[in-house]
Nucleic acid binder design. Structure first.
Lengths: 148, 148
DNA sequence: AGACTAATTATAACGATTATAAAGTAAGAA
DNA sequence: TTCTTACTTTATAATCGTTATAATTAGTCT
């Protein structure tokens, strides 16, 4: 089973999901979704826009933003907001955290068993109803370490 | 020992810190620092700007941004970047996390014993040299719960 | 006081994102 | 099929937070 096949399956699942939510699958939407699923990175809206301008020379940035919002609302995509200027977008598959390189900006997925106890402690201490949490870890990636 | 006294002590400590780093204490810097320390919230640059325009009618927004950067570089202030449009600024006292109300945006400090094991697991799994991490918890605050 | 450096101000520029309006495209009913 | 309607894309302008620039002001040092 090659990579292509796995991506295709994911894309088809995502498209079925959208269709059931009553969202039309336009060529632009298909391409944005495909790019998000196939690229292992966590691209910005502008990176998606530039990656697809070969295939869609007339596509507007607004289309990218609009459809990322559509995908977010359908629960297919998460928006990642770090300190830097622009948001990154990540296909929702399984829950995971991110570790980010301070030197080159690379983002790597990383799994960690649930921090439920943090949430429950927060609930009891603050009186909030806790819904979710986010965590990022920062450091220097192996590639950047080597370059020193 | 009143609140005023504690705030004053913190401000004096911060000012000593800056002086030792060779930073001049201008009236604007004093006021921005004072506002950051005394306000229990985590204000945006614009909120600070507006809060001080009574005292400093001619102060420029650039002054607020410049000095927040100076304070950050001195290690006195942390910049908090959440999903929303503008950064918030937090006086560094002791390490803590934040819990944020999804409904009204209120930010409450909350302590939790170190998640060192997350950092070390991340190191061994990804090969990064880990330096730090951030975590935020999201939910609905008691005030907003009551209003339903 | 005079000279040098740093800080503030006013303003313009920038970049990411969103809003608007016009034109295009698909889907369903007659 | 054709009409109608709603949705989508496009091009463009607007918005907003933040940063850069240049001129002015204020401190500091001798």
């Amino acid at each position: 089973m090659g990579c292509m096949t796995m991506s295709s399956a994911k894309i088809n699942a995502a498209i079925d999901n959208l269709k059931q939510a009553g969202v039309r699958i336009t060529p632009q939407r298909h391409a944005i979704l495909e790019h998000l699923i196939q690229s292992m990175s966590h691209p910005t809206a502008d990176e998606i826009y530039k990656a697809l301008e070969g295939k869609f020379p007339n596509m507007s940035v607004a289309t990218v933003y609009n459809n990322l919002r559509v995908f977010k609302e359908a629960g297919l995509v998460k928006e990642l907001t770090y300190g830097d200027s622009s948001s990154r977008f990540d296909c929702v598959t399984t829950d995971h955290y991110h570790i980010i390189c301070d030197s080159c900006g690379k983002i790597v997925d990383f799994h960690y068993p649930g921090l439920d106890e943090v949430e429950s402690l927060a609930e009891s201490v603050t009186g909030f109803d806790v819904g979710r949490h986010r965590m990022e870890i920062y450091g220097v990636c192996p590639d950047c370490k080597r370059k020193h």
